[in-house]
């Protein structure tokens, strides 16, 4: 006996197996990201007053990424439609676009990550805080031995709270310049990695998990576009179904970003 309903629809459910499968999988993904978004809300609501950051991420880059993903969602649908009308050439073109868009997305994302890793907050011994991007560390820079100095492009604030809302008029007005800070003046130096505070923590975790989904989706699409597309010749209907199912996953990944973007970048 062969497994039924691999391509044709089961009459009482109206679905073929893989389609039901992917929706079930997406349901579990909804729960996964649901858990993470709940964590986000809880951390944000539970943050001490004035300590939840605003405006820490680059809205321009985030918007570009939003549009890239939206476009890729569309090329994915078109790739499926092309398969459906048996236009293999167009399918190849559309999905090539999808992959290019996905890689562009990941490129921008890594650039944003790098920017955060180069951004330092330094607590100085006199109680003030220096904050800015790393320009250079002197060759003999060593925090433990208190030798050398580090150069930041940024500014100095009296209270950490001033660093929290970069959209505030005061933060907008702040003048950024090169600061040379001797190691001897430094109490604690930390970049804006996930360990910085709960905002960077949840930002890196959620966007990182999302980026992993993009990566996984891209690999699947690449497989179906390249070696896996041989199936188009032998069983075009089943191949089209595969494109549909992988497309559903891809659209879901886009959906997650549609919420991640406003939650992380805009609010």
């Amino acid at each position: 006996m062969e497994i039924p309903y691999t391509t044709e629809h089961r009459p009482d459910t109206g679905l073929y197996n893989a389609k039901l499968g992917v929706w079930l999988f997406l349901a579990s993904e909804v729960m996964l990201f649901g858990g993470l978004f709940s964590a986000y809300v809880l951390l944000r609501v539970g943050a001490e007053p004035g300590m939840w950051p605003h405006g820490w991420l680059n809205v321009t880059l985030g918007s570009i990424n939003t549009l890239l993903l939206a476009l890729s969602a569309i090329t994915t649908l078109l790739a499926w439609a092309a398969c459906k009308v048996r236009d293999f050439g167009k399918f190849k073109i559309f999905h090539a676009c999808t992959m290019i868009l996905a890689i562009a997305f990941l490129g921008i994302k890594s650039y944003e990550y790098r920017d955060k890793f180069l951004h330092y907050e330094i607590a100085l011994n006199n109680g003030t805080f220096a904050d800015g991007h790393l320009v250079e560390k002197s060759a003999d820079f060593d925090l433990a031995n208190k030798t050398g100095a580090v150069t930041l492009h940024g500014h100095i604030v009296e209270d950490r709270k001033e660093l929290m809302d970069l959209r505030s008029p005061e933060a907008q007005k702040a003048e950024h310049k090169e600061l040379v800070i001797p190691a001897a003046d430094i109490k604690k130096m930390q970049n804006y990695g996930p360990w910085h505070n709960t905002f960077t923590a949840i930002y890196f975790t959620m966007s990182g998990l999302h980026a992993l989904h993009i990566l996984g989706g891209t690999l699947v699409i690449f497989y179906l576009w390249g070696p896996g597309s041989r199936m188009y010749k032998t069983d075009p209907e089943r191949f089209t179904n595969r494109i549909e199912v992988s497309g559903l996953f891809w659209h879901f990944v886009d959906l997650v970003w549609i919420f991640l973007f406003p939650v992380m970048y805009l609010t």
């Binding site: 969602a73 659209h251 886009d254 549609i258 919420f259």
Partner: peptide
């Protein structure tokens, strides 16, 4: 936005 993507694209 999500409705558009889920409703029409999916």
């Amino acid at each position: 936005n999500a409705f558009l993507v889920a409703g029409y694209l999916m």
